[in-house]
Design a protein around this nucleic acid. Sequence first.
DNA 1: TCATGACTAACTGTT
DNA 2: TTAGTCATGA
Length: 760
Amino acid sequence: MSTADLLADLNDAQREAVLHIDGPLLILAGPGSGKTRVVTHRIAHLLEQGIHASQILALTFTNKAADEMRTRVATLAPGARVWLGTFHRFGVRMLRKYGELVGLAPNFTIYDTSDSKQTIKRVIESQRIETAKFTAERIAAAISAAKNKLITAEAYQPKSGSPLSEVVAKVYPAYQQRLLQSAAVDFDDLLLHVASLLHENPEVRAQLDEQFKYVLVDEYQDTNRAQYVILRALSHDYPNLAATGDPDQSIYGWRGADLNNILEFERDYPQVKVVRLEENYRSTQRILRIADDLIAHNKKRKQKSLWTKNPEGPPVKLITYADQDEEARDIARQIRESIDAGSRRANEYAVFYRMNALSRAVERAMREAQVPYQMVRGQEFYQRKEIKDVLSYCQLLNNPLDDIACERAINTPSRGIGERTLERLGAHAYEYRVALLDAAREALQIEGLAKRTATKVAGFVATIDAIAKYQAESVEEVIGAVLSESGYRDVLAASDDEEDQNRLANIEELLTDARQFDERYEGHAPLEDYLERTWLVNDIDGWETDSDKVTLMTLHAAKGLEFPVVFLVALEDGILPHERSAQSPDELEEERRLAFVGITRAKQELQLSLTQRRDFRGQRRISIPSSFLMELPRHEMDQVRVTSDELTFDPMEFDGGADDDISFDFGDEPAKPQAAPIKEVAVAVTTAAALAEKTTGYMGPAISPDEFTLHMTVVHAELGPGKIVALSGSGKNRRATIQFPVAGQKRYVLAHAPLRPANR
DNA sequence: TCATGACTAACTGTT
DNA sequence: TTAGTCATGA
């Protein structure tokens, strides 16, 4: 494609970015500003200019983003073999080639979060490390955070006064050593090892820097320290680093993303050319204004004005529902009706939520309304127990040092090899510094292991050896061998548990998946490459863009996507913003960015919703509206209260109030004693005042007027929670202006108003 | 010593 | 709601 063609239909800023060739480039791209377009057109332009495809490296965070770019580049520049992929995949590729420089065998295993947690547990057990009641999870998180900051096990220093860091200082080196012994890496290592090998091997660094003369990074605002260092190392001699990103869409701080990387890009690369893409081609003016107003409350950002030539659009809706079922049903109903009316198709809709746990009610409502939907959930398939079970055999074949795989496989299906036996084997392995599988091979010689048990272990080893014969065959054959030799399939087939039948079906799906992989595979290590795929793919990759279904996903997964109509549910305090972010202003800003990302996915219509009460962890809680709602321009929005008063006030209506079959256990099965908590609910919702009384979990004790402070969140007996935005007078005359998320601003004499501070 | 079933505590987001 | 832990019987 010619340069002229590549520039057609681009605005000035986009054109400027596309035409940039040498030297650092920073593209600050607001949502919907055609960023992917610019990046892909720029790649095509580089190729057009005679730059060889092998000199271009494009890094993304998700496979989906990489795939999309690949498709688009293929259209613009057919046949060009540009290396396009995720950071982690790039890490794998580097480590397969240069891993020995950091002591890693090329057939290494990648441990997911649960594997690495398991490894940490084992390390703590076998080395009897005193963990001062910190859970493996806490320790794992701390190690991960250190790795993201590029602090190696050797360099880790405990902070004085931090008991956790004292523990980490002991566990981290032991864990890292165990990983290397097992020829395994965790997700963070994929970046950390690469960063250190580039640092420690200047000649390799120089060689790669030269090889990848043009490096492009997407979502630069989400890079962590390790990624930052890798990028710097690859663009030292050839500083043609092009970063695209938007500080307002940084939502991975918890994974070590450092917003400063993008905020200080200009300091790092003084010669940088900065291009701002501010014209939005996606959303209506109304949606954009709401997004803009919200994000304006953040302090840590680069000023950026979003604008669009798009039409004004309908008002954004803000709806309060009685509970999550009402919320979900109403959304399903709206979708159902417009599909039936022929005005929209299912795939034009998306429902976003803060946490996966919130999807349940929505899913059920979609099913009931017979609305086709697809739920995008991180890692689902390959994370299932039965799939991990089967794959653990494959992992063990590929890497016999992989103790976690061995531990998993050794007693699945159940062979009578239990905790104690495993402990003995583990102790033996630790003592002689051999892999668990090797310890198992010597089972008969291990002291303290009963003959009978040792025989069982030997049986397992024989199984592994039998399967190993298939190792060089296609992946489907390997998995087939695992299923028959291990007896896993027979055990499941013989079971009359419905769950097991389900598992069997999933395993058949795995075989199909493997077959499809085999059919398309061109390479020389199918098993290893297949495993790599199972470790690094994300479920969003399985997201079908063109199927006609409503999309259900978390806000995190939604980044980079767009939909004509978006529903954002559960705008409630503790959910969005999430309760775990309440203490830190930085984290609160990240939550706000998350909301911003959700809002800016919408092209034409947007509905925000919240509920008055929500079932959570089996408990019913009264909701406090999200503080973010107070930051939105209310006059721009259509506020609706579908709280159906009759439903709230009349317990009888409550039972069958909505148009279809709400059923509660207590109605159908009077014999069961668990009806009690529901009864309480029926009382609780009798009146709004009573409801407020019942919110004592959220309401602090009554306090005197002078104890109310500015910005305090308070709960009003009828209007619910609100925030104090102004205060005057004192004692009996002390008055407060309170901003309620839904009811707006109200002024009260504190001595007489039914107000209490929220209990937080 | 293992498997099984009951009980309990926790549970954000993702490569 | 479920994963993980604990107690109990085989």
